[in-house]
Nucleic acid binder design. Sequence first.
DNA 1: GGTATTCCTCCTGTATACATTATTTCTGGA
DNA 2: TCCAGAAATAATGTATACAGGAGGAATACC
Lengths: 254, 254
Amino acid sequence: MATAGAPLAEDRAVSQTVRAELMLRDLILAGEIRPGERLAELAIVERIGVSRTPVRAALMKLAEEGLLEAIPSGGYAARAFGEREVLDAIELRGTLEGLAARLAAERGASSTALDRLRDLLARLDEAVARIAASEDAFTLYIDLNAAFHREITRLAASRVVERQIERAMSLPFASPSAFVRAQSESPEAGRILILAQDQHHCIVDAITRREGARAEALMREHSRLAGRNLAMALRSRAALARVPGAALIQIRTE
Amino acid sequence: MATAGAPLAEDRAVSQTVRAELMLRDLILAGEIRPGERLAELAIVERIGVSRTPVRAALMKLAEEGLLEAIPSGGYAARAFGEREVLDAIELRGTLEGLAARLAAERGASSTALDRLRDLLARLDEAVARIAASEDAFTLYIDLNAAFHREITRLAASRVVERQIERAMSLPFASPSAFVRAQSESPEAGRILILAQDQHHCIVDAITRREGARAEALMREHSRLAGRNLAMALRSRAALARVPGAALIQIRTE
DNA sequence: GGTATTCCTCCTGTATACATTATTTCTGGA
DNA sequence: TCCAGAAATAATGTATACAGGAGGAATACC
């Protein structure tokens, strides 16, 4: 069945459901579907070339993620988010990551886990130092930052907590690195990253000393940097364009 | 359309997917499926009498809820929860409800909303007073308690927060009323309900005075009462049997 | 001209047949 | 007796046909 001239290269291996999910998510995040617009299954079938069954599965998944909302009479529509909802999503992520940080501190991290964290910190330090010089450093920072947050989540050593954090971050603009790129052109960029990275250090220190309350408070405040970045991003169309899922954010036009 | 002799009474009206979901959830919660056991679609089809399509949808939903886990090679298996995971789920719920209570306090509740809360408090007071006398009072308390928690969640005035709380409570033993019934036979029952109800009062007071930090701390501690109830329930098979979803809780046998 | 009603179209819900992949069981050999 | 391999079996993944219902357009009536 694998036709030549494959326009989808390596995607051949994965299931149709996963493919539908990825393509549909991209379509939504790219803003190709206007918020509120109904997503007809057959229209998607034609667009991405798989049958209704996997499309249906993908729609259900994306609705669970929060990108779509179920229409009472059936079907799904693209969801829009106001500035306030984006802030709430960030606050929610901060609260959950704060819980994870506190649990990590209270339950104690193994020395190998702490070593992993310190290694990430060192590499983040290096990335921050290079930010002014090269554009690549931003990409590196984003990757390392994501890995750092993931590691803290893991240290909570709780499946239910981990799962919930994953879900909270399924909204693309709620992820820890969502707004890092937004201010890559801004003169403040370097300053904010220095603040963020110092918080990273403090969080690891708190976990090491098993200071749960401190770890939690720091992690919450850390997430609010993203909120500050959002406010800045909303003032510049160019900055907002660099935020993943920006198309879903509805800007008040008055 | 309700046919006579209906074995499923009102269920006729709802969709097959919803029916499959409800029946399957009941089956799992009743412990008819051993944790770890694979749930073959065809087996379910035979058991609940709908075709594979709605069964598949139901499986996906229950997996999202956390009752099932996806098997890497395909399909789903029933999930089991250790004591620690149940406690984590309760802590998670407390953290999220704490966030909701703080937001409710910070954003301010309308006077009509506060009236609703006070009305619920009064009815809860009454139910607590009658606990010793009648068994019905327990059921009433559970309903009112659920309504109280729902109202706080609503007062956060945030769709994303509300959604996340709903998801955290989709594990049946994580709901605010899960362990109330567990200790209905216990002599301590009345005492714990008095504590819980006093916390309810304090939480409403904090929200009224817009004391966000206090509201949050109280709500978190409030959830820990459920943790204490869990510890008690685990010491008595009879008590545990009254907890929803108890079949999913794996008791350490040593 | 506006409103209500009917009809038509399109969309989702459901069942099922087919394809593909995982798992188990049976057999042969060491 | 245990292990390896192959065949058989059973499960999921996928496509599609059909049924029922929602929503919109057109027409008739007021």
